[in-house]
């Protein structure tokens, strides 16, 4: 029947033998390097074990935790917070992008101008579009099949805006006219092909 002393002696014997197996006493330089977190993982494990097994040096273990571990523990929440913040920013960005992609693209009726082709002879007056205030651009779709070298926006004073190298897509040319060129009044659009007038359109805004 083994007694309490037998168990304690057995543990002490194991500690002695393990201390010798690990190379005996650590040097002061090794201990300082361990406390400063400068050792490789294997060396740190060995020095830590020797500090544990030597009661005279065991209190030094807590010096390491007061120096290094709190610093590391302070860094962890900061790093975690940064990761969460970054993820939040990315999430918001992606949601904004998705929202922008889902938003109707410039086809809202109030952005769209309506023009009619001008023909020889009497014609009804062109339609009038209300100009919402503060819009940067207005969309104008014109039924034109052939590539055009230039498109002019003309009012009473002459050409107020031009666009070059416009190519039709599925029988239509889409223009984005900057809002600053449009004032209430009547406008004509001249579409030029290979140096000659191809089509004319008219619209009014108020």
């Amino acid at each position: 029947m083994m007694t309490k002393d037998d168990w304690n002696d057995a543990l002490d014997t194991w500690i002695d033998s393990e201390g010798h197996r690990l190379g005996g006493s650590p040097t002061p330089e090794e201990v300082v390097a361990y406390l400063r977190g400068e050792l490789s993982a294997a060396d740190a494990a060995r020095v830590r074990a020797l500090l544990v097994y030597d009661p005279a040096l065991t209190p030094l273990l807590q010096e390491r935790t007061t120096n290094i571990v709190p610093f590391r523990r302070r860094l962890l929440p900061i790093a975690a917070a940064l990761v969460i913040a970054l993820q939040t920013v990315l999430l918001i960005q992606s949601r904004v992008q998705i929202a922008q992609m889902n938003r109707p693209f410039a086809h809202e009726s109030r952005h769209e101008l309506e023009a009619v082709p001008l023909t020889r002879g009497p014609a009804p007056p062109p339609p009038v579009t209300d100009l919402p205030a503060g819009e940067a651009r207005y969309l104008l779709a014109l039924p034109v099949d052939e590539p055009s070298s230039r498109i002019d926006l003309v009012d009473r004073s002459g050409v107020v805006w031009s666009e070059t190298e416009v190519r039709p897509i599925e029988g239509s040319i889409e223009l984005e006219i900057p809002g600053k060129f449009l004032r209430p009044g009547s406008y004509r659009i001249d579409v030029y092909g290979e140096g000659h007038l191809v089509k004319r359109f008219a619209f009014r805004v108020r």
């Binding site: 006493s25 650590p26 040097t27 002061p28 330089e29 201990v31 300082v32 406390l35 400063r36 030597d54 005279a56 040096l57 030094l60 010096e63």
Partner: peptide, 27 residues
């Protein structure tokens, strides 16, 4: 002894160094 190679003792770690050195000297 410690003063002979004081350059090996980082500032703030004097007590840890001395403690281990004293223990090893005693043994």
């Amino acid at each position: 002894d410690t003063n002979k190679h004081i350059d090996r003792v980082p500032l703030g770690y004097e007590w840890a160094y001395l403690r281990v050195a004293a223990r090893n000297h005693a043994i």
